[in-house]
Design a protein around this nucleic acid. Structure first.
Lengths: 217, 217
DNA sequence: TAGTTCTAAATTGCATTCAATTATGTCTTT
DNA sequence: AAAGACATAATTGAATGCAATTTAGAACTA
């Protein structure tokens, strides 16, 4: 039975790509899982060609990796690699915070605050899925606040790649509330409009995030 | 007449991808140039399938961009965008220099020095192509010296994307020599093993690089 | 002559087919 | 029973074919 890929007249390949990203981010396709073209083609009710295209795009983004020998897999990382990838993300996030702080507009500020409200609401309700989505939006607003779409895209890419590993940090309601509180501190640092304060704030935020992610993986 | 894509038993699609990157970086395929699958297929003596795959990969890397309606083109940027993309690259390069300095090994140091010797040799010979290649290698060794393959990959990606624009800076022999001298200063800052010195050094290096690139584009 | 519409060519997205390489499983041989 | 070799199945890389959409051009009209 073919999955109903939401067809908003999107090219088939793009729709499949989006669905795979979704599947990976929610953990349905776990890291290390091998994806075969024929199987996916059947699942999506399409031929191998658009599936292949989707896999290629995802591989180019680092979400999938092409194995040494044969087959393409959902990226999985050793603890060493995980630490490295978080270090890279760390650098970018810090740059985002610093730039966003230095260019903060009233609009960006409102957007960040609004996103944080969503996070708190979801955290207090213990709504894990809702929180993950809101958390995502929160960080995206910070990226946009840099006013630099290239940096924002970069940060988003890392977020996609690390999604499955970060998600494991959030198990109980307490985890969500703790994350929301971290947001609060980070927000104030960015709103200070001081580059150093903002980058230091993001630095401690990311350090905390990394240690939690390493503990959970 | 089919180009002789250096066939080291590489998959055809990868060989085509590599050749296109080369063509773009040396300016043979200028920004904004539209690439059609059939034409490239004929040029490479292959079918459209591997060409398509190569284009897809390059598009995912941001080297090519898919137009709104039809056609895939070599990425071209407005001055505004160019400044933004250089800002992003700037951030990453600074992080690389800082990390490389803090983790510098004897081996990395030798590699960087050796690469710089190549740069000087090419610059003094007025060998533009040779210099571009050596310059590339010089920066790659710094990336590798971070010990973090993810950051190194990131930096490489930006280098590929900005290649055509940076290349325009190098017109006469004097440009090459000036760049080699900048390398010298940057190297010493990194070899100081002091994070702050290294990142400040890279910061001024990149600022200089950006202003030259903007002047040339 | 400028604008509009219709037709033909070009280009792309997807499907299908073919070929080649790698994995799997069985059968032998010791 | 273990190890190796061979045969067969699975999977990917590449080619070809086809349909649909977009662009370009020509012819026609105002």
């Amino acid at each position: 039975m073919a999955d109903n890929v939401q067809n908003q007249s999107l090219p088939l390949a793009r729709a499949i790509e989006a669905q795979l990203v979704e599947d990976i981010s929610i953990g349905l396709l776990e890291p290390g899982r091998r994806l075969d073209e024929a199987g996916l083609a059947q699942r999506f009710g399409a031929s191998r060609t658009p599936v292949r295209e989707a896999l290629l795009r995802l591989a180019a983004q680092g979400i999938l990796v092409e194995g040494e020998r044969r087959g393409i897999r959902v990226a999985e990382y050793t603890r060493e690699e995980l630490s490295q990838i978080f270090e890279a993300m760390h650098e970018i996030e810090i740059a985002c915070a610093r730039i966003a702080a230095s260019r903060l507009t009233l609009l960006s500020r409102h957007e960040i605050e609004a996103a944080q409200v969503e996070c708190i609401t979801a955290a207090e309700a213990g709504d894990r899925t809702g929180f993950l989505r809101a958390n995502e939006a929160f960080h995206q607003t910070i990226y946009r606040a840099t006013g630099n779409p290239f940096i924002a895209e970069l940060a988003s890419d890392f977020r996609r790649r690390t999604g499955p590993f970060r998600a494991k940090k959030f198990v109980v309601k307490q985890d969500l509330l703790a994350a929301a509180e971290s947001h609060e501190r980070l927000m104030q640092d960015i709103f200070s409009k001081d580059s150093t304060t903002a980058s230091n704030g993001m630095m401690s935020y990311m350090t905390e995030s990394l240690s939690k992610a390493l503990a959970a993986n």
